[in-house]
Structure formats: structure tokens, C-alpha cells
Simulated scan of single mutants.
Amino acid sequence: MKAEPAAQRRLLDLAEVDTELARVLHRRTTMPELAEIAAAEQAVRAKADARVAVQTQLDDLDREVARQEKEIDAVRARTDRDRAMMQSGKLGAKALTDVEHELGTLQRRQSVLEDDLLELMERREAVEMDAQHASVELAKAEEALAGATARRDENLKDLDTQQARRDAERATIVPGLPEGLLALYERKRASRGTGAALLRARHCGACRLEIDRRELSRIKETAADEVVEHEECGAILVRTAESGL
């Protein structure tokens, strides 16, 4: 393929821009904040699950406390009723004995229920502390996630600016290149990563290898408007005064 030396040299400008665009893309996909966000999101999910679990325990205890208090109220109401009956003076001896016996049973039952309620309240207090701790831990995890996300977004904004600038530069370079030369460059870039590089001091700017004497002689004898490719890495070699030919 033939192309004017000036057009070939413009490939170096394009390659430089594309290298910067590749770096921008690499930074987009490898910035530390991405891994930090993934870890923070996992932590938030775990902390949220932990809070839900402890809140479920607290809700269960609240229902149990309410049930226990309702049962105690029922026993107290029954006790008050029996005492009112005893004080009415309308009970016979046997009925009075029965009511006295029931009152004793109710008092023992109330004592057991109140002990159970106290135990439930102590358990609830402990679980409530766990719930508060779980909420604090979740808030910390959410704050860490928000911080990492903000740093990522700031980095992305900077990368967007860099990419926009490089895209604009590329848009000014591409129209000045011959269609065939540009197509060859793009194929090389797609398959090799680097489409064109400077031949400097007998070294390929793409793969950094020193070019052997045989190939160097071949390149030296090739016309200036002939497009040269490195036999080793396949990149287009752009010749300038720095090439050492």
C-alpha cells in the first residue's frame, strides 16, 4: 500500500490519541473505586439483612410482650372481680372458700406472668440495643458506599473530559488520512492494540523490539511512500529522521 509520508506521519498523531483513549478506557474499568463500591454494596446488603433480622426479633418480642401484658391484665381483672365478690358479703361459706382458693391461684399466676414479662422486657432491651447497633453499622456502610460512589463519579467526570478532548482531536485527524491507510490502521489497532508506531533508532515503537539487520535493510530500501509493517508485531512503522536508517 502506498501513502504519502506526511499522511503516514499523521498516523503517529492518531496513534497517540488512540493510546490516550485506551488509557481512559482502562482507567474507567480498573479504577480502585469500582472494587471499593462492589465491596461497599455487599457490606450494605449484609448490614441491611442484619438489621432486618434483629428488627424481626424485636417485633416478635413486642408481640410477645403485648400478649403477656394482656394476659396479666386479664388475671388482674379476674382478681379484682373475685375481691369485689368477697367484699360484697353475699357469698356463702363454700363459695367464699372457692373464691379464696381462686384468688390464691390467680396471685401465683400473676406472679409467674410478671416474672416472665420482666424476662421478656430484659430480652427486648438487649435486642433493641442490637437493633440500634445494626442501624449504626448500616449507616456507616451506606456512608462508605456514598463516599466511594462520589469519588468514582468525580473520576468519571474527569475521564469524560479527557475522552471528549481526545475524541475532538481524533475527529480533526481522521478526515486528513487516506481511506485505505486509515482502514489498514484500524485493522491493525483492532487486532494488535496498536495500529502504527514510530520507527526510532532501529526500534519499533509498538512492541519496543529492535529490528534486525535484514528487516532494517528491507525497510531502508522501501520507497518513502510505501507503507511498511513490522514483521514481528504487524504494526505500521512510520519512518522519520529519528528512525536511524
Rank of each mutant, 00 (worst) to 15 (best):
A6C: 05
R9K: 09
R10T: 01
R10S: 11
L12P: 09
L14F: 04
E16F: 07
L25V: 09
R28K: 05
E33V: 00
A35V: 10
A40K: 03
R45S: 03
V52N: 09
Q57H: 12
L61W: 07
E69R: 09
D80M: 12
R81G: 08
A84D: 07
M86E: 13
Q87S: 12
K90G: 06
A93V: 11
A93F: 15
V99G: 05
E100N: 14
L103Q: 04
L103C: 02
L103W: 01
L106R: 08
R109M: 06
E119K: 13
E122I: 14
E122Y: 14
E128K: 15
D130W: 08
A148M: 00
A150C: 03
D153V: 05
L159F: 06
Q162F: 10
A164Q: 08
R165Q: 11
E169C: 03
A171E: 13
P175K: 03
P178T: 02
G180T: 08
L182N: 00
A183D: 01
L184W: 01
R187N: 05
R192F: 09
T194C: 12
H203M: 11
G205A: 09
C207E: 01
L209I: 09
I211G: 03
D212Q: 13
R213C: 02
L216M: 15
E221L: 05
A223V: 07
E229A: 10
E232K: 14
C233D: 00
C233F: 08
A235S: 14
V238N: 02
R239K: 13
R239G: 03
E242S: 13
